[in-house]
């Protein structure tokens, strides 16, 4: 159970981190291309590019912790895919995290205390 709790916490942190970065970038993209002429690459700030690069690697970590938790929770392959893909859709990682967290809490509560 402790292992599941640890995996769930790691997943929770990564779901929030990738979710916040992707959400911020989505809003930034809409504002930048909609109102600030980012199509003209000269005005695109370095931080904006850097964050997209960072998001690529954050999502990679999200995949690792997501697969780890899904395996420990014995989720079906389709449910696992759903959780992993949620990380690429803006604001969906929060939704996925909500349901996964609820599920983990029920599972932990249902289990007797781990003797180990």
């Amino acid at each position: 159970m402790n292992k599941i709790k640890g995996a769930a916490l790691r997943y929770r942190i990564m779901a929030w981190v990738t979710g916040v970065v992707l959400g911020a970038l989505t809003i930034w993209l809409i504002v930048g291309y909609g109102f600030m002429d980012y199509a003209n690459t000269d005005v695109k700030p370095g931080l904006y590019r850097l964050l997209w690069t960072a998001h690529g690697w954050l999502y990679f970590i999200y995949l690792i912790v997501g697969v780890d938790l899904a395996f420990r929770m014995r989720y079906s392959i389709l449910r696992t895919l759903g959780i992993l893909i949620a990380g690429t859709v803006p604001f969906m990682s929060f939704v996925a995290e909500y349901f996964v967290h609820k599920d983990v809490m029920t599972r932990v509560a249902a289990q007797p205390v781990d003797p180990a």
Binding site: W57, Y59, V67, F71, I77, L81
Partner: peptide, 26 residues
């Protein structure tokens, strides 16, 4: 950015193999 995305797509492909194998095993 393009350079990292090129690497990341290959990592994602490797991930698909790992997930398939691990779940099949179970």
């Amino acid at each position: 950015q393009n350079f990292f995305y090129a690497i990341q797509w290959l990592i994602f492909a490797a991930f698909a193999i790992v997930v398939y194998g691990r779940w099949l095993w179970r």
